[in-house]
Amino acid sequence: MTTQILIAGFGGQGILFAGKFLANKGLLEGRQLSWLPSYGPEMRGGTANCSVVLSDEPVGSPIVNKPDVLIVMNLPSLDKYEDAVVPGGTIFVDSTLIGRKVQRNDVRVFYLPATQLAQQNGIATLANMIMIGKVLKECDFTGFDNIEDAVRTVVSAKHADLFDVNLKALKLGHDS
């Protein structure tokens, strides 16, 4: 099985980090994978997106043109990628930041006020991981097991204090 995932939003939302978490989870599960960032010259505020491919076979193109799973954290990203999702695919929408609904009816859609949830729970910078928690619950390409190990891999030693809040965010998304 091959799952093509596209995560898209603004720079600064942790789009690449969210992808890194999924990639490391795949690595821990011994799967084939690729992680590819795409962003402009800005550190924050520009568009940022991240292609992750998880597969049981060697990964061909690492560029996700037709995602099975689309995670969007701003309106321009939904506008740009909504039509690219494969029929039967899944779209996760941060409904705090995106006012409109998905127009298609041949895909599964989950709306989650991730940015609002993050703010209410004192983890304002972790809406990305709340979204990922929801993805792990609703999709079957990987499970909610071993999340501690995957978080440990992506949270660097320098930021070890952020380990618990990342787990909290994942669980928050999972239970929403």
């Binding site: 992680w35 590819l36 690492p62």
Partner: peptide, 8 residues
């Protein structure tokens, strides 16, 4: 692409 992407 190859420079920026991560793979095992």
């Amino acid at each position: 692409t190859i420079g920026q992407m991560m793979e095992p």
